[in-house]
């Protein structure tokens, strides 16, 4: 682990004044190194493009991407639909689909996980369902839900559902048996064991499931937005393809990545607030 080594080094050096301590802190260097690498890649990319070694159409350089972003914010693409609209629409569909999935999958997973017989009965179905790529269900969903918002949201909900239900079942089933023994030796009644031991013990895994499901939702969204719409980042990318705007495709890609990253950080923050006891790096 290089980061551990880096952390050990400053202790051996003559002590710095406390104010400068961040200079020797490993995370500062990690952040700087990350930003530096990114800047270097962008600079080389731009340079190669200016020198004519990279085709501007296939590899639009950073300056062009910047210009496309400005264009998207002001006049939009297709005309009149700005980047803000695309982002908000995508976010709305993802959040809606994700919430529906969580509202169904967490309770279902808790019930299935708690009763061993149900776990055994459903494990085949769940593995089966999880293996079917959500995108392949698209034609069926169009038939069921039409081409409006419902089909898109349902597609995301479906993809997220399998992930969340799988993690929730595992969380409920694999509670440290020692904790259950402790509870029983303290004369804890069954319902209390469920509410105050099994559920809290399962929470870390449920949260992990929610985070994984969210990244799955971001993968599905592009496909979901191929269905009869001009709004949303996925639709924007599809539209850009038909009008040969590789720069806009790439901005759309980056926007989805950035959005996914931001929402993930939000969930991380929520986890730290809700599960402060996890900071110790729990076995989860």
């Amino acid at each position: 682990m290089p980061s551990t080594d880096a952390g050990a080094v400053p202790a051996a050096l003559p002590t710095r004044p406390p104010r400068m301590r961040w200079l020797t802190h490993p995370t500062t260097w990690t952040a700087l190194a990350g930003a530096g690498t990114l800047a270097a890649i962008l600079a080389v990319w731009e340079l190669l493009s200016r020198l004519g070694w990279l085709n501007e159409f296939f590899f639009p350089p950073p300056s062009l991407l910047f210009a496309a972003t400005i264009e998207l914010i002001h006049s939009g693409f297709p005309d009149g639909i700005t980047l803000t609209t695309h982002v908000l629409m995508t976010l709305q569909r993802i959040v809606l689909g994700f919430l529906i999935a969580a509202a169904l999958a967490v309770p279902a997973g808790i019930v299935i996980g708690y009763f061993e017989i149900l776990s055994k009965m459903t494990s085949g179905i769940i593995t089966f369902g999880r293996s079917i790529a959500a995108i392949s269900v698209l034609p069926l969903f169009i038939a069921w839900f039409g081409i409006g918002e419902a089909a898109k949201v349902a597609l995301i909900a479906l993809g997220a559902f399998w992930v969340i239900v799988t993690y929730t079942i595992a969380g409920v089933r694999f509670v440290d048996p020692l904790l259950l023994r402790v509870a029983r030796s303290l004369d804890t009644p069954g319902p209390v064991i469920f509410a105050r031991v099994i559920l809290p013990a399962a929470l870390p895994r449920i949260f992990t499931g929610l985070k994984v499901a969210l990244s799955v939702a971001f993968m599905i969204i592009v496909a979901a937005e191929m269905i009869a719409t001009v709004t949303g980042l996925g639709a924007m990318i599809t539209e850009a393809r038909t009008s040969f705007r590789t720069d806009i495709t790439m901005v759309g890609m980056l926007a989805i990545g950035l959005l996914g990253w931001l929402v993930s950080r939000l969930l991380d923050g929520l986890e730290q607030v809700l599960l402060p006891w996890r900071k110790g790096g729990l076995r989860a």
């Binding site: 020692l178 904790l179 402790v182 031991v197």
Partner: peptide, 11 residues
């Protein structure tokens, strides 16, 4: 009962 691995509720 007191266990070798303590068995405290981590939350």
């Amino acid at each position: 009962v007191v266990f070798q691995q303590f068995g405290l509720f981590p939350w």
